[in-house]
């Protein structure tokens, strides 16, 4: 349903998205996972028609978003990262208005408005002015505005940012319901746990490029079932990089500086005493240690040398 081929987007010579390609099908939740500024929202912006790609091709249900934008847009539902609703209108007026923007009329518009508000858990607050809503309720209304026309492709750009836990669970359930109904969902997030619980397939993006993609299982294999050990203290980066791997077989230095060290190692908890001993012999001073089991987080750190929230 969505085909993105070699997408590139530049702003004044700065590359925001570089050679991004992926496809997503009906009933599938495809995740774009990456830190802030990785290029996720720019990718969504290009697919939705908000931004013009510098290069590449995007098709939605076979319609080229540049050449046949109206058809492509008609098939899309967009839930932007920023809440995009009229605070001085009621929830019902908001959903109705955006339903009209997608060509809904008469009884079907009324039925769909009602259904979208019920889905978002706002059925009993439909006539209230939005300015009285909590942040979570506005997020859900934002979602309702994006699905009122039953889009076949739904673009969700970090829809749970700043949302209370209850609304977050509700929103994730809504996404699952949409995918269950056959909608192709493209979901961007920097929350690892959301991606793990929601997405059928993922592309991990950093600095505008896809650095890994596949199903959750495929991505986990990329970590080779290795644990990540993160240490804080005082280190000699040159000595650690040169000597640690030789001192402790199977240890791989992911990143290091004077105060931090991250290594990947199989069966980390069993290898910790040897690791500490080797580091002591290399003149390091350890103050704190964290061991992370194989996950998207550890994969991301392994691939980029940094944490997702950095």
């Amino acid at each position: 349903m969505i085909q993105v081929e070699s997408l590139r987007k530049e702003y004044d010579g700065v590359v925001a998205v570089d050679d991004v390609s992926f496809t997503a099908g009906a009933g599938e939740v495809f995740g774009l996972l990456g830190p802030n500024g990785a290029g996720k929202s720019t990718t969504i912006g290009c697919i939705s028609g908000l931004l013009s790609p510098t290069a590449g091709r995007i098709r939605v249900l076979g319609h080229d978003v540049m050449r046949d934008s109206r058809s492509a847009k008609s098939a899309l539902g967009v839930v932007p990262q920023e809440i995009a609703v009229y605070e001085d209108a009621s929830a019902e007026e908001n959903v109705t208005y955006w339903g009209r923007a997608y060509g809904l009329r008469g009884g079907r518009l009324r039925a769909r408005t009602s259904a979208a508000l019920e889905l978002a858990g706002l059925g009993d607050r439909a006539r209230e002015p939005v300015k009285r809503f909590s942040g979570g309720m506005k997020r859900r209304l934002n979602f309702a505005c994006g699905i009122v026309h039953e889009p076949r492709v739904l673009l969700l750009d970090e829809p749970t940012v700043g949302v209370d836990p209850q609304s977050r669970v509700r929103l994730l359930d809504l996404v699952r319901e949409q995918a269950g109904a056959g909608t192709c969902v493209l979901y961007t997030t920097h929350y690892m746990e959301e991606a793990e619980s929601l997405c059928d397939r993922l592309a991990i993006v950093d600095r505008g490029r896809v650095i890994a993609s596949g199903t959750l299982e495929e991505l986990r294999t990329l970590t080779a079932e290795r644990d990540l050990v993160r240490l804080t203290g005082r280190f000699d980066p040159a000595a650690v990089s040169a000597g640690l791997a030789a001192a402790v077989p199977g240890v791989e230095v992911v990143s290091t500086d004077a105060a931090h060290l991250t290594v990947s190692v199989e069966e980390g908890s069993r290898r910790l005493p040897a690791l500490f001993s080797a580091l002591a012999s290399l003149g390091a001073e350890i103050r704190e240690t964290t061991l992370t089991r194989p996950s998207l987080e550890s994969l991301f750190i392994k691939l980029t040398g940094k944490q997702l929230r950095e």
Binding site: K73, E82, I83, A84, E87, R100, Y102, G103
Partner: peptide, 14 residues
């Protein structure tokens, strides 16, 4: 500022 202009851009009516 409230994002509705962006929503209008991505809607087919334009």
């Amino acid at each position: 500022a409230q994002g509705t202009l962006r929503r209008a851009v991505v809607s087919p009516r334009g």
